[in-house]
């Protein structure tokens, strides 16, 4: 397994105040000390609730946010140290698809211009070449019948999400961050887009980082899953292992919380997590989950557990 993307101690903090001098007082600890590898050809699921930092992590990997600390290596090269030309090359290899099919398009641009926005390289110099390529891409995502000079507001949510995928594919990427790509869609449309993503992965040999709060969707699409809580990875395992035998207490409650579409199983014993996610401005010391964890002991309050285990299943818990 060769790693396409390597994250080493990746950290992203956002200052909350704008100051003229000195350092900001309040800082959001969005992503803290994340180390993991994404292998070429795999689909890594990134799961977490609001405020877990999963979207921020996705954007920081692509250097859309400059990391506060740590490095991102793509094919062994430090992305932070790339010069202009190399950065351009990186941008055409690593792409992103966003959740919101409304705010992810400039309302004043046509579909043609939106999809062609990334075509900055030689082959697409002429207008005609770009238009032909856009046609191809629209066909690829199942929108062969639409007018490319339409505007985003004329399309449904599912169609827009396909347009977003076409825009990302326009630069022939190898790696795509999918940031909650189906969360805003209706159930019947969601499955269409998931199937599209699965077949594109096969056809084009793509590697995905699939960010989602929906554990069922993650299970369908992903080969490995990382679970985030308050900016840290708490568990990282192959999909089957994680769903069959979660080892972090947070993963267990997260899985138990998913409603099951089978009325015969409604009377199963339930483990309901109490309380709320603490503020990422003042994250708890030690294990960040200790404030809500049924297994927490003194060591959990004092020491940050390291992510440890074998290649197929790693967990950051003192009691796992």
């Amino acid at each position: 397994m060769t790693a396409l993307v390597e994250l080493r101690g990746l950290t992203k903090h956002f200052p909350l105040d704008t100051v003229m001098w000195g350092t900001p007082k309040r800082v959001v600890h969005a992503v803290d000390d994340v180390t993991l590898d994404i292998a070429a050809g795999e689909t890594l699921g990134l799961v977490g609730e609001t405020g877990s930092g999963k979207s921020t992590l996705g954007r920081t990997i692509l250097h859309l946010n400059a990391p506060t600390a740590g490095v991102v290596r793509y094919r062994g090269e430090d992305v932070g140290g790339l010069d202009r030309a190399a950065m351009q090359r990186f941008r055409s290899r690593a792409q992103i698809v966003f959740q919101d099919p409304y705010s992810s398009f400039d309302p004043r641009m046509t579909i043609q211009d939106i999809i062609a926005e990334g075509m900055v390289h030689g082959a697409h110099r002429t207008r005609a070449a770009r238009a032909a390529r856009v046609r191809d891409l629209l066909r690829t995502v199942g929108l062969g019948h639409v007018y490319s000079d339409g505007y985003p507001h004329q399309f449904s949510g599912g169609q827009r999400q396909r347009i977003g995928i076409a825009r990302a594919l326009a630069v022939d990427p190898e790696f795509v961050v999918l940031d909650e790509p189906v969360s805003a869609l209706d159930v019947s449309v969601q499955s269409q887009v998931l199937n599209l993503l699965a077949s594109l992965r096969e056809q084009l040999g793509l590697t995905y980082l699939f960010i989602s709060h929906d554990l069922s969707v993650v299970r369908y699409l992903c080969t490995r899953v990382a679970v985030m809580y308050l900016g840290r990875i708490v568990e990282l395992a192959e999909t089957r292992a994680l769903y069959a035998a979660p080892r972090h207490p947070y993963t267990s409650v997260l899985l138990a919380a998913v409603p099951i579409a089978d009325p015969r199983r409604r009377h199963r014993p339930r483990q309901v997590l109490q309380g709320e996610v603490p503020s990422p401005i003042h994250p708890p010391p030690g294990c960040r989950f200790h404030t809500r964890c049924p297994k927490a002991t003194t060591i959990c309050r004092e020491e940050v557990p390291a992510l440890a285990g074998d290649a197929t299943h790693m967990v950051a818990c003192h009691h796992a």
């Binding site: 159930v187 019947s188 969601q190 499955s191 998931l194 069922s216 969707v217 369908y220 089957r240 099951i260």
Partner: peptide, 12 residues
């Protein structure tokens, strides 16, 4: 069309 937590779905 709903993916559930059960195993072994190839295509939705």
């Amino acid at each position: 069309s709903i993916p559930d937590l059960a195993d072994g779905q190839e295509r939705l």
